[in-house]
Design a protein around this nucleic acid. Structure first.
Length: 473
RNA sequence: GGCGGCAUAGCCAAGUGGUAAGGCAGAGGUCUGCAAAACCUUCAUUCCCCAGUUCGAAUCUGGGUGCCGCCUCCA
């Protein structure tokens, strides 16, 4: 069976066939850099990272481009609020988001174009649209005329009439300049004090949607294989991208449109406006980055996932379980595990799952199955870890987990964890006292001391050889 | 109002006609004086409700109920 993906544009599963054999052009809608990334971003970019990794596993060269929106109303507002130049804001959050995504082991895109570095191409594209009659200048702005594009609404499955009815009552300050309420800005005239670029329509800046059309054309060409983003981008953002690009190129902007479901909180979409978001860096103070990644991959990417402490905790425990199995093998070999000689049955099960529209929950379940097998083998007798069977399963787990799903395994914990040095002499004395009591089999006294220390938040762990380790709870 | 999605064990979650994956938690056990850790075993006659199609339905059809999303910036 080969890879099948759900295409938003057709609303059905379709076999994936790239335009050029062996090559996939993939564009991921990136972040607008005006704040820290939250769990919604984490989900989206983890999911697309796995899509990329799996395509590479299948042997494709993936040209993965992810843009950075570094000019936008919200950025300007933030800069104004802080009284700093726009670049201070954008640089701060570009760096922060890059760090956050790297901690989640998300591979960097091969190209990360920025809107502010694509201005000439944006202007060129708007001019083309104007020449072709799809754009009109009005009041210093330039707008896209949605009525000129017959295909408008095909991606999101709605008609202009429907949307107009729904949008009635909504008024923005641009409405006076528009011919149709759903027309959208390609170019915005600069307001005093705002960053601006010269253009045939006067100083101004690009609208939000046009940058993606221009950047795709610039970096990947007129027609790409996969375009991805959150479901909230289907309309209007991606719809508008199509409208801006296709009249000019006369080609489908993207053959496959993939969209991920939302992260929810108490059943509602996590979003800035609702104030129910948690930033990635905040969550990572409580949970391991790979636990967060596992949590994301244990749901299908198109389903909503509810961000709750029990769910994240469960992922944390599950992550530990997987790592236990990896730690049974030779850690030094982890970075260099090759793709070949994987267990054929496991490989088939894994691929069957992933081929079904990237069914990562099923794929993860396959890996848990391998982990279980490894544990059985490891605990069933001597020499087991050196058998070819064990070695192959172990390599399979490491390769599929780490390289394809991007779950980066930690080194095994040191056999003797270092004790925290701030131990007070009193505690040390009590531990010594208890060890003496144990030696004399005076367990009542030993337990008394255990409980005494437990009351102070000190937990004791007895190891073989009469060694007692301790840590604060 | 228009369009779309979802409802599976205590929690999370796969599964689109052939008799319920996986994770977490729980229970029992092994090993340790106890505890912890680790490992083993176990855990849905049933898939929101009602009716229908079928030899057979969580999966298809019709009708309900509940929840969510998009239509405005948003991953």
């Amino acid at each position: 069976m080969s890879l099948t993906v759900y295409n938003t544009r057709t609303r059905r599963l379709e076999p994936f066939v790239s335009q050029t054999p062996g090559l996939v052009k993939m564009y991921v809608c990136g972040v607008t850099v005006y704040d820290y990334c939250h769990l919604g971003h984490a989900r989206s970019y983890v999911v697309w990272d796995v899509v990329r990794r799996y395509l590479e596993y299948l042997g494709y060269d993936v040209q993965h481009v992810q843009n950075i929106t570094d000019i936008d109303d919200k950025i300007l507002r933030r800069a104004q609020a802080e009284g700093v130049p726009m670049q201070v804001i954008t640089e701060r959050y570009i760096q922060a988001c890059t760090e956050d995504l790297a901690r989640l082991n998300i591979l960097p895109a091969k190209d990360t174009p920025r809107a502010t570095e694509t201005i000439p191409e944006i202007i060129q594209l708007i001019q083309r649209l104007e020449t072709l009659g799809y754009a009109y200048a009005s009041g210093g702005d330039v707008y896209y005329a949605v009525e000129r594009f017959p295909g408008y609404g095909t991606l999101s499955g709605r008609s202009l009439e429907q949307m107009q009815a729904g949008a009635s009552g909504r008024v923005d300050d641009e409405i006076a300049h528009k011919r149709h309420p759903l027309d959208f800005a390609l170019w915005k005239a600069a307001k005093p004090g705002e960053p601006a670029w010269d253009s045939p329509w006067g100083p101004g800046r690009p609208g939000w949607h046009i940058e993606c059309s221009a950047m795709i054309y610039k970096t990947l060409g007129p027609s790409i294989d996969i375009h991805t983003g959150g479901s909230d981008l289907i309309f209007p953002h991606h719809e508008n991208e199509i409208a801006q690009s296709e009249p000019v190129t006369q080609k489908p902007l993207a053959r496959y449109w993939l969209h991920n479901g939302f992260v929810t909180v108490a059943g509602e979409k996590m979003s800035k406006s609702l104030g129910n978001f948690r930033t990635i860096r905040d969550v990572l103070t409580e949970y391991a980055p790979m636990a967060l990644r596992l949590w994301i991959l244990q749901s299908h990417y198109r389903q909503p996932i509810e961000a709750t402490p029990p769910a994240l905790q469960a992922a944390q425990s599950g992550w530990h379980t997987l790592q236990q199995a990896v730690w049974l093998g030779d850690w030094d070999a982890v970075p260099t595990v090759p793709k070949d000689d994987l267990d054929p049955q496991v490989r088939t099960e894994f691929e069957t799952a992933m081929n079904a529209d990237f069914n990562t929950p099923a794929a993860v379940a396959v890996l848990f199955g391998v982990a279980k097998q490894l544990k059985r083998l490891a605990h069933s007798g001597n020499g087991h870890r050196h058998t070819p069977e064990f070695q192959r399963l172990w390599r399979t787990l490491v390769y599929l987990g780490q390289t394809v799903l991007g779950l980066k395994f930690d080194p095994p914990p040191a056999s003797t964890p270092p004790q925290v040095p701030d131990i007070s002499e009193e505690i040390a004395a009590l531990i010594a006292q208890r060890q003496e009591a144990r030696r004399q089999k005076n367990y009542a006294e030993a337990d008394r001391i255990r409980e005494l220390l437990a009351a102070q938040g000190i937990r004791l762990v007895d190891k073989p050889g009469g060694v007692t380790e301790w840590y604060r709870e």
